[in-house]
Amino acid sequence: MAYSDKVIDHYENPRNVGTLDKSDPNVGTGLVGAPACGDVMRLQLKITDEGVIEDAKFKTFGCGSAIASSSLVTEWVKGKTVDQAMTISNKDVARELALPPVKIHCSVLAEDAIKAAIDDFKKKRQARQEQA
C-alpha cells in the first residue's frame, strides 16, 4: 500500500524527535504500545504552570504511519493548552495524513500518547500540590 505524501514527508523529516527530562515536574511522559504489531511510541510534553504546552518530543519505533502520526501531533500540540490538546482525536490525525483503514491504529496510538502524557503531567502536579 502506498503512503500518502504527508506520511512520507513526516517519515523522512520527522519533527521533534528526541527526549525531554522525565524527572522535570513540568514534563509529562506518555508511553503507549500497539499489541497488534508490537511497536512502541513515547510522547513527552513540557507544560507550563499555566497549562500551556511549550515543547513536545517523540520517539517511535514503528511503521511509517506510526512515525508520521506522532510527528504530526507534536507539531499540533505545541502552543495549545492542555484542554485543547485533549480534544485532538485520532480521526483528525488519520484524515490529515490520509491513512488507509489498516493504519488507523497508528493514529489511535498517537491520540492515546497525548492523553497518557497529559495524564502523567497532571498526576505529577497533583503529587506536588499534595506535598506542598
Binding site: 508511553l31 503507549v32 504500545g33 512502541v40 489511535v108
Partner: peptide, 19 residues
Amino acid sequence: REDTGTQKDMPFEFLEEVL
C-alpha cells in the same frame, strides 16, 4: 485488533523496557 482495553494494556514498566 487495534482497540486497547484493560485486558491488553501492558504495564508501563514493560513498555519502558521495550523502548
